[in-house]
């Protein structure tokens, strides 16, 4: 499970989020943890509702092909893999608080153990601060490659790009593209 980014351990000497620590891992285990924050000029309730409908995640998460809700807390994630393949796992909501927080975790038999947490904090006139934290335990072999692709070379970059797309969609109703033709747009995907 991912630590709450805002919570400081007793020994911390500053107020910076834990994942920015230069030494040691924030999660305390072998997990890779990435966190990214973005401020979105929309109310927290709207952003929460969009995210909680997990099927929507595929619209802005580049490597997520599809998320199907199985019941109120479980969903099947279908993620793009190299050579046109996909990998799948089932995620379960582990914690939620309306308009504030959603945390999820892949079920125990997942090929890629991973968990995530997104928090929505009211930021007054600026809208809502959205902080996403994702932890995963990168395996070796084929699946390792999938994970590497999913999170790209630098996992933080992928998370940041996904959050930017979420922000664009919520603030402008569309995701920016510099393509000139439909063909170019499809090639970029």
């Amino acid at each position: 499970m991912v630590n709450d980014m805002g919570t400081r351990e007793a020994l911390a000497s500053d107020d910076a989020p834990l994942v920015t620590a230069k030494h040691g891992t924030a999660a305390g285990q072998s997990d890779t943890v990435v966190a990214s924050a973005v401020t979105i000029n929309r109310p927290a309730a709207e952003l929460y509702a969009f995210w909680r409908d997990f099927a929507n995640l595929a619209t802005f998460m580049e490597n997520v092909e599809r998320v199907d809700a199985l019941d109120d807390t479980r969903s099947r994630w279908v993620v793009k893999a190299p050579a046109g393949k996909t990998v799948e796992w089932v995620s379960r909501v582990t914690e939620e608080a309306a308009d504030r927080l959603i945390a999820w975790e892949a079920e125990a038999d997942a090929e890629v153990p991973n968990s995530g947490r997104v928090e929505f904090r009211d930021a007054g006139a600026r809208g809502t601060v959205v902080t996403a934290t994702i932890a995963y335990d990168p395996p070796a072999g084929f699946i390792g490659k999938v994970v590497a692709k999913m999170f790209q070379r630098e996992p933080a970059i992928q998370a940041r790009r996904d959050l930017r797309r979420f922000k664009q969609l919520m603030e402008t109703g569309e995701i920016a593209t510099s393509a000139r033709t439909l063909k170019q747009l499809e090639e970029q995907d």
């Binding site: 401020t39 000029n41 600026r126 809208g127 970059i157 940041r160 790009r161 996904d162 930017r164 797309r165 922000k167 664009q168 603030e171 402008t172 995701i175 920016a176 593209t177 510099s178």
Partner: peptide
């Protein structure tokens, strides 16, 4: 975009949303 925080302040050349997400890395 006209709807982000910076557009709201008329700081249009600082708009958050007009650059495709992947292109934002370089300037970031």
């Amino acid at each position: 975009c006209g709807s982000c925080y910076h557009c709201g302040k008329h700081q249009y050349s600082a708009c958050d949303n007009a650059l495709p997400a992947d292109n934002q890395d370089i300037a970031q």
